[in-house]
Write a protein that binds this DNA or RNA. Sequence first.
DNA 1: CCGAATCCAAATCGATACTG
DNA 2: CAGTATCGATTTGGATTCGG
Lengths: 136, 136
Amino acid sequence: MDSECAPDTPFGYDAFRRECMSHTVLEMLASKWVYLVVGALKPGRRRYGELQRKVEGITPKMLTQTLRILERDGLVRREIFPVIPPRVEYELTDLGCNLSDLLNQIRVWAERHAPEIRDSRAQSLAGGDEPAEFRA
Amino acid sequence: MDSECAPDTPFGYDAFRRECMSHTVLEMLASKWVYLVVGALKPGRRRYGELQRKVEGITPKMLTQTLRILERDGLVRREIFPVIPPRVEYELTDLGCNLSDLLNQIRVWAERHAPEIRDSRAQSLAGGDEPAEFRA
DNA sequence: CCGAATCCAAATCGATACTG
DNA sequence: CAGTATCGATTTGGATTCGG
């Protein structure tokens, strides 16, 4: 094993520990752009420009950076076609597909529960807590 | 609906659009500390100090900030006992429990696939790409 | 068309010290 | 015990420019 990770988890890794390898994996996943790019990659092969259009507001810099991280970690495969104009396609690996299913569940959850969360935030702003505190 | 979100999703929200409410939910979830704190909260009620010990390396500042965000969004309930010394307990709401299951799957995924990802990163560093490029 | 490179502003985070 | 306050380091992100 990489280093001393708590042994009370199914696979000998414990993301709660900073030195544990799985902790760094979680850090990698904890990114808005990773969610969205992996989500945009879900059906099949995608070109760079497609991704940029699908993930609204992502800059070339962040898109490239995110794709490089995903490639480095074995979640995405990149294929370059030596033609002019350049053509580069991205595709999820098996590992990436596997992850994609989970991340998409989160995305769907976010979409499904957005209203409740919006309401909760509104209440928070209005000072909506402690029962029966009537402010005239 | 909050604003113009693409209508081609099951719930009328589309996290790929920046102005969409669900996009901000995703931003909230895309945090290492949210993963870990929600994970640490999974079985039942937890005191502040317990959480701090469980989530290795979290500072009081980040722990408080994360808990406040989760409370604001209706995922965590906070109960204060007016005693000395102070006692404060945190608990997932139903919504939070629901989310917790998903986030835990991600955490387990990270733990399970940590070895493959470590290997992939190592290969990346070694320049391990393009087939049959023999570097003497 | 697909990026790489650079610069800079801003937000985030961590460490530490302090309080009721 | 359960936070708050402050400060500096680090990271992040966006805008822009350039090249193959």
